[in-house]
Amino acid sequence: MLVQELLNAVLIGGIYAAIGIGFSLVYGVMNLLNLVHGAIIMLAGYVTYSLFARLGLDPFLSIPVTMGAFFVVGYGLQRFVINRILTASVFMSLILTYGIDLVIVNIVLLVWKTDLLAVTPSYAGASWAIGGLVVSKIRVAIFVVSAALTALMYVFLDGTRTGRAIRAAALDKEAAELVGVDTPGIYAVTYGLSSALAAAAGSMLATIYTLTPTLDGIYLGKAFVVAVLGGLGNITGAAVGGLVLSFAESLGVVVLGPSYQEIIGFGIFLVVLILRPYGLVGRRFYAEI
């Protein structure tokens, strides 16, 4: 049965990676602790719900829709709002992003009320039974999609002109400007991408989690832990961070009992924060992807 637990942990790790990757990207590029991240995942989940309930759109097919829409939202948010305070103190950016988070939560309360909602396509909850093991179809799909998105993100940052500009802006803002990178624009693209990744996570997670207007905090907490474990700003690190957190949680349940599901994860988080603030995945230079 340990195999079952390991399998679960890997699949949940994929979910956590999807939650953390965009958060890590924004921090890495503009040193912004983006408290809006969880709210965007949550809001994308609600949008996915409405697309599913009203139009019958499959949650996985709504991924491109929410990704596109939230890219635009994120781009605008950064371009017209967050860019203005980026040079102010960290405290200011925390207040601003927390404020935006509250706005989104209230939009959710206004539009979707406090009802508990779930996206239940016909395959929701369905599993493959393979030799005594049970594998949830949706979780496998989520794992595959988040792995694909992480890989795409890596290729984009590594191999495209805009991707390199994002990395350059992350490594040295002024030097990037000196070679012609319009950093406010690149920040907006980065935030847009982060929001799109958050939206993809939100669309997929709507099929597993129950939608409530308090999910933003839960998602944000996971995103933060995952990003720190992997090294803030490190895209591939976020994938590792997701797996580490998920294994820590499973280990907590198996070894110490269900009440300790979160203790080990947070313990590792604290240790990493103190001993390896650059994350578990080693990097020589800041903002390597």
Binding site: E5, I12, I15, Y209, I218, G252, V254, G257, P258, Q261
Partner: peptide, 18 residues
């Protein structure tokens, strides 16, 4: 068994129940 009230995904616990 009790689990932390902040947990949203109970797969690890439910695996034990199974």
């Amino acid at each position: 068994e009790k689990y932390p009230p902040t947990v949203k995904d109970l797969t690890p616990v439910m695996t034990q129940v199974k």
